[in-house]
Each structure stands twice: as C-alpha cells, then as structure tokens.
C-alpha cells in the first residue's frame, strides 16, 4: 500500500552508495513496503502540537575548551588505510574519463 517502488529503492541505493543487484532491489521493495506499512502509523499521533524529541535527555551548551589535545600520528591515521602514499589516503579517480 505504500509508495515503495523498485525505482525508488534503486534511487535510495544510489543515495546510500550501495550497488544493489536486481534481486536485491526486488526483495527490498517487498520488504520495505511491508515495513513502511507498519511504521507509517507514527503519523497518526504526531500532531502539530507535539514537539519533536531529538535527544532523550535534555541538555545544552556542552562545550570543549579550545585547547589542543593529543591526537593521532600520521602512522595511526593511516594504519587501517586500504591504500595510502605514505602520508595521504589514496582513492581511485573521482571522476571518470573526460567525455
């Protein structure tokens, strides 16, 4: 009954950077449809007069003094890198060949 379509799922896959196969899209479309039907009921009670709660324990103005603390060495920064040039992380081309 919801608006979940294979195209929407594919679009969500692009937004979330997950390369979904066609079977995954089909399966997820059905599953999400059922889930969304069940969870959409939140809007029944979420009337305009009810404020939203983003943090369960209300607090404010939690700040850190502007003082440099021990941070990471370059070796620590890179220790889990799939690829690096010794001081920077290396990734494959960001854009494809020029068209």
């Amino acid at each position: 009954m919801s608006e979940i379509t294979p195209d929407l799922v594919r679009h969500l896959g692009v937004l979330a950077r997950i390369q979904l196969s066609d079977e995954e899209v089909t399966r997820l479309t059905g599953e999400l449809d059922a889930i969304v039907d069940n969870i959409a009921k939140v809007s029944q009670v979420a009337t305009p007069d009810v404020p939203a709660t983003s943090h369960p324990i209300p607090m404010e103005n939690v700040f850190r003094p502007d003082e440099v603390a021990v941070t990471l060495t370059t070796a620590q920064a890179l220790q889990n890198a799939p690829d690096a040039d010794g001081s920077r992380f290396r990734v494959t081309a960001i854009l494809g060949e020029e068209q």
Partner: peptide, 22 residues
C-alpha cells in the same frame, strides 16, 4: 535503505519527524 528513505526530502516530516514526536 529504510533510513535513507525516512530522511529523504519529502518524507522527513511524515517519517523521521513524526517518529521524533512519538
């Protein structure tokens, strides 16, 4: 994928926003 949907432009108020009200 579900979370990406719930936050997407046009769905936020109905889903994530409503859930925060709940």
């Amino acid at each position: 994928i579900l979370g990406t949907y719930a936050l997407s432009a046009g769905y936020y108020d109905a889903y994530y926003g409503s859930a925060q009200k709940v």
